[in-house]
Each structure stands twice: as structure tokens, then as C-alpha cells.
Nucleic acid binder design. Structure first.
Lengths: 143, 143
DNA sequence: GTCTATGCAAAACGTTTGCAGATAT
DNA sequence: ATATCTGCAAACGTTTTGCATAGAC
């Protein structure tokens, strides 16, 4: 699981478990809070060191996410994300244009392309509903 | 240029000029340093407030760039970036798969997609050369 | 027993903010 | 004249780090 010379401590197992059992992409702070329920003395430093270790060895993936904090993902394969600009939710998505896009980017820039990642910004279904309800209420009120 | 009620101060003009005349995408710290040559007492707060004001009104564009600091771009249209994982250089690139990708993302997630941004990670031409030279030297040395 | 990992605390980093005084309009 | 903007300094949230101790192997 982790290369020889590394120790599988209870803290590391707990951190890995939290990422793998998470219902969504967690920040380091969220992981820290969840692990703290079982290990009340765990330190932020341990959480960060462990997350980076796990990511480096391909057990999890880190997404350094613009505005705010990095998110950690149990998925380790390449994939893209959709980000709700209203509530902040971050959802995985597969988009099939990968190969063509990379080839174009390589040709246009001379770079050797190793990886890529697309972030779509938008409004999630639940926030669309809320917005639509608000618009309807506003119309009703105006009458 | 900037809506009524806002003031065009020398500091704001200098900050806008630095972004527009930059040879590449600058961080807030780099902009601060450059503006400081002309306005030695300028404050970080002023730089950030101005950059956000300019971005909000569409005079520049901010890219909250994962790992490190936000970069500010004189281009205000949608475009993608190629990032050199060796030297950190960040270069603009156009990729034509936009419409299809957005449609797929919308269908798969139910999101209303407003925007998207792809970051390609790779090795820039100059770092490729350096690497190739190093490999050749290593081979020569081994003989 | 050895060497790595942990907890703690301090600091680093990019960024934001409250406030009194300065300045564009 | 007045509302906005500036500079300063303090504070913020995230992440990293040095160090002595604890604990996995």
C-alpha cells in the first residue's frame, strides 16, 4: 500500500479511510476535524504530511483548488470537475475531448503535455431550483 | 473605463498599466514590487483591492492558480493555460473543444455551465532542451 | 534498538480588513 | 465638501516546519 520504509500508523490509516469514505471532496480542515473524532490529539501537521504522502504514492489525489483550500479525492485517475459558483459544491465529471485537446495544446505551444484538468464553473441543479423559486416568488410579489 | 462613482487614482492607473504591459502573467506580489518602483509607499492592500476592482469590471482577468498565488492577465476573454511543471512558466493557449465539452459536462451533471478553464501541465520547450542535454551528458559520462 | 512519525507550537505565505488621514471629484 | 481611496498594521485561513518525544518495525 505504502512503499517499504514507511510505517502504517493508526493516524495514517484513519486519514486514508476518511478520504476513501468521504461522500464528497474534503479539504484538509474537514479531514482533520473528522479524524479528530477518533484521534483527538492529532495535529494539522500530521494530516498535511500524510495527505501529501498518500498523494505522492498514488493512493489519493490532491486538487489545489483556486480560491480556497485544496481538496482531496479518493479517485486517482484523471478526471475533470464541475464547480457550483453558488454553493461551492465540487462534482466529478468525465469529458471525452482529452486527446484532441492535448494534441492541439502541444502543437500550439511546443510543450510536452503530461496532464490536464478542466474546471467547469456553473450552477448545480439544487441551486438552479432555488434561483427559479426566488424568481417566481418575486414575480408573484410584484403582482 | 471604470464605472461612475469610482476614482481614477495614480495608483490604480499604475497597477492597471503594469498588468497590461507585463510580458507574462504576474502575481500580486510581482505587481506590488513593480508599482513600488514608482510609488514606494503603495500598500499591498491597495494592490489587491485594485486588482479585484479591475477584474470585477472586466479590465483584467484573475486566475486563482492552484498551488501558489493568483495570476493577473491583461486578456479578458476566455482562454486556457499551459503550465510548465519544471520552471513554472504559464502560457496562454487556445483549444477549440469548448462547446462540445461544456455540453457534455452539462448533460452529465445537470449543472448550468457558465464558464470553463483547462490547465495543461507539461514541460516547456526550454526545459525540454535542458533535460535532453542532461540526458546526453549522462550517457557520454557513462562511457 | 533504530529510525520514522507524531504532536506541539511557531512561522510562513498569500490575502483581507478596520481604521484614520489623504485625495479625487 | 464629501465620499471614496490610501497606507498602515493587524488579522486571517491555509499550509509548512523545527524539534523533542513517542511508537512502528
Amino acid at each position: 500500500m505504502i512503499p517499504a520504509g514507511f510505517r502504517m500508523t493508526p493516524q495514517r490509516m484513519a486519514i486514508l479511510a476518511e478520504v476513501q469514505n468521504a461522500e464528497r471532496h474534503l479539504t484538509a480542515a474537514e479531514i482533520y476535524e473528522r479524524v479528530r473524532r477518533k484521534y483527538p490529539t492529532i495535529a494539522y501537521g500530521t494530516v498535511y504530511r500524510t495527505l501529501h504522502l498518500l498523494a505522492k504514492h498514488g493512493l489519493i489525489q490532491e486538487f489545489p483548488f483556486g480560491d480556497n483550500a485544496s481538496r482531496f479525492d479518493r479517485r486517482t485517475d484523471r478526471h475533470d470537475h464541475v464547480h457550483c459558483v453558488v454553493c461551492g459544491e465540487l462534482v466529478d465529471v468525465e469529458v471525452p475531448t482529452a486527446l484532441l485537446a492535448r494534441q492541439v495544446a502541444a502543437e500550439k505551444t511546443g510543450f510536452e503535455i503530461l496532464d490536464h484538468q478542466t474546471v467547469f464553473a456553473g450552477i448545480c441543479p439544487s441551486c438552479q431550483e432555488k434561483r427559479d423559486r426566488t424568481v417566481q416568488e418575486a414575480r408573484a410579489g410584484r403582482r
